[in-house]
Amino acid sequence: MDIIIANSSDDPIYQQITAQIKNLIFKGELIEGDSLPSIRNLARELQISVITTKKAYEVLEAEGYIETVPGKGSYIAAQNKNLLQEKRLKIVEEKFIEGIIAARAVGFNLEEIEAMIKMLYQEVANE
């Protein structure tokens, strides 16, 4: 499990952690029952505050991504397949929306955006 913290990022560190763990779940790299490092262990390894990792785990738990068994540790919770798919879809949508807003800001219309996506898709597929 890789987690990388960017000190220069504007996002709070706990958000960086939750986002990365969620991503690992979406990608299927972390699956139900996988155990997570302890709050203190993660803090030590990342050289960050215990409070930060604690908050990250609390958020993940509240959102249903992980489960914490007192005295045992934290595990990846069972994910509802449909829900997971929905969440993945949502992430894709968010990225597109971001792109569309940026494109519109410089005056692109729908056709131009579609053309651009087609071109970029080809490029990525060829890589």
């Binding site: 000190n7 960050i48 505050s49 215990v50 409070i51």
Partner: peptide
């Protein structure tokens, strides 16, 4: 402390300016 501190207590001129979690300050 930027890295590992959980709480920061800041004293200046014999007075505590704040004593809170580092995350609160950074956020």
């Amino acid at each position: 402390l930027d890295k590992i501190a959980d709480y920061i207590t800041f004293i200046n001129n014999g007075e505590i300016i704040f004593s809170t979690t580092k995350d609160y300050i950074m956020d």
